[in-house]
């Protein structure tokens, strides 16, 4: 049962996997991510991606602020596509194995604002 109306998707599982990334990457107040943060973002599981999307990046309650902020961080880490929260990677991300990857486009540079 959700504990907060602001974070309706905060499941116990999310509560377990989110703090690490939140603390390391999104609670710094800086749009320049650390190497440690980028490493974790790159190795984050689909569960973590889904939780971050649902509760933070694309959470309607905060996405107007966290969206651009997260975008800046994930873009700099080169993982914007993974955290685009557009439904392509949300929850169903397959990053290991698998010969049919439909989400493998290069995202070296994304547009600004």
């Amino acid at each position: 049962e959700p504990q907060s109306t602001m974070f309706p998707e905060m499941t116990p599982e999310c509560a377990t996997v989110m703090p690490d990334l939140l603390e390391k990457c999104f609670a710094t107040g800086s749009v320049t991510p650390t190497e440690d943060c980028c490493t974790d973002l790159k190795s984050a599981t689909s569960t973590q991606v889904t939780c971050l999307c649902d509760n933070y990046i694309a959470n309607p309650a905060v996405s107007n602020i966290t969206g651009p902020y997260s975008k800046a961080i994930t873009t700099k880490c080169g993982v914007f596509d993974k955290y685009s929260c557009d439904g392509t990677s949300k929850g169903g991300e397959e990053k290991k194995g698998g010969s049919s990857s439909s989400n493998g486009k290069d995202n070296g540079k994304s547009e600004g604002n």
Partner: peptide, 25 residues
């Protein structure tokens, strides 16, 4: 801008706390 970033950081901290609260209960 920097202000929005700090707000976003605050949101993250809030989320962090929310998740911790969830874990505790």
């Amino acid at each position: 801008g920097g202000r929005a970033n700090s707000v976003a950081a605050s949101m993250a901290m809030f989320g962090l706390l929310a998740s911790l609260v969830f874990v505790m209960f």
